Amino acid sequence: MDNRYKAKIGISIGDTNGIGPEVIVKTLSDQRILNFCTPVIYGSADVINKVRKALSAEHFHYQQVGSAQALLPKKVNLINCWEEDIAVEPGTPKPESGKASLDSLLAAARDLKAGLLDGIVTAPIDKDNIQSEEFKFPGHTEFLTSYFDAADSLMLLVSDDLRVATVTGHIPIKEVASKLSFDLLIRKITILQESLRQDFGILKPRIAVLGLNPHAGEKGLLGTEEVEIIRPAVMHLKDKGHLVFGPYPADGFFGMRMYKQFDAVLSMYHDQGLIPFKTLAMESGVNYTAGLSVVRTSPDHGTAYDIAGKHIADETSFREALFLACDIIKKRQAEQKPVLK
């Protein structure tokens, strides 16, 4: 791989009435970003200009291009995904803002699938108002898993050396126990192991697996999933020589900072993993979709309608998502480089 190559990173604009456009403009106002990648905003010059003006972002500059085949290096590129002007009403979810977020996402995903991009960073969507005939998914992760024909994927939250994944994703809490199975755990742990090796360069990853129930079931007294499903899956992988440990009671595991002893933690459901992760790393956290043939990251926050338009959104998580995408792309490309003899 040519070390001078700058990855082409598509950026979907997210819900135009959320903080997505704001954190994009703030992040790309730092021209040093162009030393690491060629950013491509999928959205609307009209929306971006309104946000730039509201922020008085005098250091933010971009160049409109007609397609991803005409990208300009050392520039922030912008591809218009719709022609009509839409009202920007920060803090108010609207059908128009939902449609805009979908148009942007579909355009970026199409170009990624066509090989015109090296990866994408997705700004936050409103999971309700994006719903349509083309998007019947609970979130980005499920949509991209389907769009890129992956057998399965894994939501992996990343911040420095803290990595937390979830077995189940955007489903009601009452359905979690019924979804768990031996095969599902083996599949999710395998995806996590492969991602840690391929995308993070950890050759022999140590993985901690959390229990589902309080006190990890207390030997069956408080629930049997640990005895019947989780521990057998852990032992099966340990017998094969993998460094997989658990199940651990979730509260004590994080309370005693045991996560520092592992390369990644696998939680059983969304909030079990994301609450401690966001408590520890809300500002710098990144959501990475492991298990895909392509690279996709996003900030670990949502549309934040409550602060949209107040110009106080912190862009750190979005910037870290952009950098993580660049790092993973570089690692993947290095692995594909022919060995010289």
Score class of each variant (00 low, 15 high):
Gly220Val: 06
Lys50Ser: 09
Arg187Gly: 05
Asp118Ala: 02
Ala233Ser: 09
Lys53Met: 11
His140Ser: 04
Arg110Gly: 03
Ile230Phe: 07
Ser56Cys: 15
Lys240Val: 06
Pro276Asn: 03
Val88Phe: 04
Asn49Met: 12
Gly241Asp: 03
Arg231Ser: 15
Ile19Ala: 05
Val23Ser: 01
Met256Thr: 07
Val234Trp: 11
His170Asp: 08
Arg197Gly: 10
Val47Gln: 02
Ala216Thr: 01
Leu112Asp: 02
Thr38Tyr: 02
Ala54Val: 06
Arg319Gly: 07
Gln272Val: 05
Gln63Asp: 09
Phe254Asn: 06
Leu55Tyr: 10
Ile189Trp: 07
Lys337Glu: 15
Lys74Pro: 00
Ile307Met: 04
Lys74Arg: 13
Pro172Glu: 14
Leu292Arg: 03
Val265Tyr: 00
Leu106Glu: 14
Thr16Pro: 01
Phe262Glu: 07
Pro247Ile: 11
Ile191Val: 12
His140Lys: 15
Gly241Arg: 12
Asp126Gly: 13
Asn213Pro: 01
Asp111Tyr: 04
Arg231Phe: 01
Lys260Phe: 05
Val164Met: 07
Leu157Pro: 02
Lys278Thr: 12
Lys6Gly: 07
Asp314Arg: 02
Asp306Cys: 01
Ile312His: 07
Thr289Asp: 01
Pro205Arg: 03
Leu222Cys: 09
Thr279Gln: 12
Gly10Ser: 00
Ile171Ala: 08
Asp118Asn: 09
Tyr259Trp: 15
Tyr288Met: 08
Thr168Gly: 06
Thr316Leu: 15
Ala57Cys: 04
Lys310Glu: 15
Lys94Glu: 06
Asp15Leu: 09
Val176Gln: 03
Ser97Tyr: 04
